[in-house]
Amino acid sequence: MRYPSRSRLSTHDPNLKENMSEKNDTESKDIQWPLWEVFTQPRDGKPHEHAGSLHAPDAEMALENARDVYARRKEAVNIWVVPSDQIVASKGEDAGPFFDPADDKPYRHPQFYSVPRASKRRS
């Protein structure tokens, strides 16, 4: 187990303060710790899925909080935590160019291909 140094832990940390005041100045009056997104893997070999979010001062605490909030009833075999501000998301105005063109291109869907009977039976 490794621990962040004193400066990383301290709530006097300039980065953390900056983070918090930034949030204060904008839309919300959120003076909580930074936000993290939690992804849990339900079983070995399954993909990690978004479980929700939580507040935590650092990565280790985010992991522990994630365990307590999202995996205390055997929901997961593995957990990822990611700082929410590290997630790059498409914007609302991207929806048109990103997703609409798919509307009139049914040929992009694989259902027009006939599936060999042998492989059907196996699945």
Binding site: M1, Y3, L9, T11, M61, E64
Partner: peptide, 18 residues
């Protein structure tokens, strides 16, 4: 083991915090 990890991490953060 988890109780120890949880409380130890908090001791470090409270002791070495503000």
């Amino acid at each position: 083991k988890y109780h120890l990890r949880h409380s130890r991490e908090w001791v470090l953060r409270l002791g070495d915090g503000t």
